[in-house]
Write a protein that binds this DNA or RNA. Structure first.
Lengths: 174, 174
DNA sequence: AAGTTCATGTAAGCAGTTACATGATTTC
DNA sequence: GAAATCATGTAACTGCTTACATGAACTT
């Protein structure tokens, strides 16, 4: 369902597009929130057309097909967004690793956490640069709140990794 | 791979157990980090036995089978934990909804965010209670860092939802 | 003419969900 | 004797990954 909604969202925000276009739009925007590659996008668009959520336009050069959101598609996206029930099982590999972390010796876990903190810090810097650089265009506005969320996530993870390393180090010495 | 590692982790931490036991242990602990039900656990244990990561003991009452981690299993878990390369595609429905949020009118998105902030706040309270109540036992120590991470996550999400609601409200009025 | 980018797909396989199915043992 | 809990599984389906496959249209 999420993939569908992401595609409907992109088609609504930036207008009709081909599977190829959508694959690229995915990469440069919603990819930070939900990943999908072309091998998943093409069949999904076909199913969405069959379900009446999008229509397929004329075939352009190189067999290009253009998809447009239907009213039904708009309605479905809207309904999905305003539905509060989004209980989905957690599956967070980072959290799982955190869970299993006490199985390592401090000599192993501390450097590991420091390295991870570095990765999060780097990712954070990227997102902050993105936030600072982009002008206030339609496209920017579109992913604005998600970018803020991403920044908060990276900051939180960096701090957690750093402080957990400190805690383990302190406990090992104390 | 994650499911395997979670199972190896539980078997290492709390000793040999049956699929049934592991299903319950999952629910009460690692479930907050990685969800799995019995229909996924039973076949996975069978495959792990075939791969030599666990051994199956004598059948007990009611056909109960007890699994024990092998040396190979321990090694694999350890290797997985210390490997830095854990690039996996993001698939976060909450972030996707955040991304698509500007598609709603403030009249819809603001109450939605307030409600979500409430859900996160409630979940945060639960986790904080868990942290405060549990004595310093082996089991507690095991998931300690993960619990801290969970608390930080809920706090971050609550704040993001609340502050984004404020931002949208302010922008709509200003 | 060769290389790159545009553009679409399929196939095999792994991971996860939901529902179905069965029966033994303990507890009331 | 009935109900709850213990205990194990399978089957059909959806979602996702990795790799394969093809060819048209630009660009150098």
């Amino acid at each position: 369902m999420s993939l569908r909604m992401a595609l409907l969202g992109l088609l609504t925000a930036s207008g009709p597009a081909s599977g190829y276009d959508l694959t690229k739009r995915f990469e440069s925007s919603v990819n930070h929130a939900w990943h999908a590659g072309h091998s998943q996008i093409y069949p999904e668009l076909a199913k969405m057309a069959a379900d009446g959520l999008v229509t397929v336009g004329e075939e352009g050069p190189r067999g290009r097909k253009t998809y447009t959101v239907t009213e039904e598609g708009s309605r479905r996206l809207h309904d999905w967004l305003v539905t509060k029930e989004h209980f989905r099982p957690v599956r967070d590999e980072g959290a799982l690793r955190a869970f299993l972390l006490p199985m390592l010796e401090p000599e192993e876990s501390v450097p590991l956490l420091r390295r991870e903190a570095g990765v999060y810090a780097a990712r954070l810097a990227e997102l902050e640069a993105l936030e600072a650089s982009k002008p206030r265009e339609r496209e920017t506005r579109f992913g604005r709140y998600a970018l803020d969320l991403g920044i908060r996530q990276m900051r939180m993870m960096r701090d957690w990794a750093e402080e957990t390393a400190d805690r383990i180090e302190h406990a090992a010495r104390g």
